[in-house]
C-alpha cells in the first residue's frame, strides 16, 4: 500500500513538473517518454496538453520516433515546422502525427549515465525555440531526472 502511495506521489511530481513547463513556455504539449526497464520499447507515461488518448497506446522501438532517436543519440532534437525539412518521413514521428504537433524540442533524460527517456516540448504551430525556452526545459529535465532512479528501481522490483 505504501509502495502504491510512493508511486502515486512520484507520478504526481513528474506531472507537476510538466505542468510548470507547459505554463512557463506557453506550449501546447509536453511529455515524458521512457524506455521500459525490461525490453527496448519506449512509451509515453506522462503527458500534459494531449488532445486524445493515442499516446497511451504508442509503444515504439529504441531508435524510432522522436523519443527513440533522442534516446539512441543522447542528443537534443528540434523540429520547427513539421513535416517540412524533417529527416525521414512524417510517419517516423508518431507523436507529432498523433497530437497534430508542428514544432518540438526534445531532450534526453539520463539514468545511471545512460539516456533512458526523453522530455518533449511541442506546439501545434511552427516555432523556433529560444535559448531561454531551452534553458527552462533543461531545468525541468534535471528535476525529472531526479525522479528516475525511483521510477526505474520500482520497475526492477516489479
Amino acid at each position: 500500500m505504501a509502495f502504491n502511495k510512493d508511486e502515486a506521489n512520484r507520478q504526481a511530481l513528474i506531472l507537476d513538473d510538466l505542468t510548470i513547463l507547459e505554463k512557463a513556455l506557453a506550449c501546447d504539449f509536453v511529455g515524458v517518454a521512457l524506455q521500459k526497464q525490461k525490453g527496448l520499447e519506449i512509451t509515453w507515461p506522462f503527458v500534459r496538453g494531449n488532445r486524445n488518448e493515442k499516446y497511451k497506446y504508442i509503444s515504439i522501438r529504441y531508435g524510432k520516433g522522436i523519443a527513440g532517436k533522442v534516446i539512441a543519440t543522447g542528443s537534443p532534437m528540434e523540429i520547427n515546422l513539421f513535416p517540412v525539412n524533417i529527416s525521414g518521413k512524417s510517419t517516423d514521428y508518431p507523436i507529432m502525427l498523433a497530437e497534430q504537433l508542428n514544432s518540438a524540442y526534445a531532450l534526453p533524460l539520463y539514468w545511471n549515465g545512460i539516456p533512458k527517456g526523453a522530455l518533449l516540448i511541442a506546439s501545434r504551430t511552427g516555432h523556433f525555440f529560444t535559448e531561454d525556452e531551452k534553458r527552462s526545459a533543461d531545468h525541468i529535465k534535471r528535476q525529472i531526472e531526479s525522479h528516475l532512479p525511483e521510477y526505474f528501481n520500482q520497475g526492477e522490483e516489479g
Partner: peptide, 8 residues
C-alpha cells in the same frame, strides 16, 4: 500500426 501510431 496501433503500437506505432496509437490508433486502435
Amino acid at each position: 500500426f496501433t503500437d506505432t501510431f496509437g490508433v486502435l
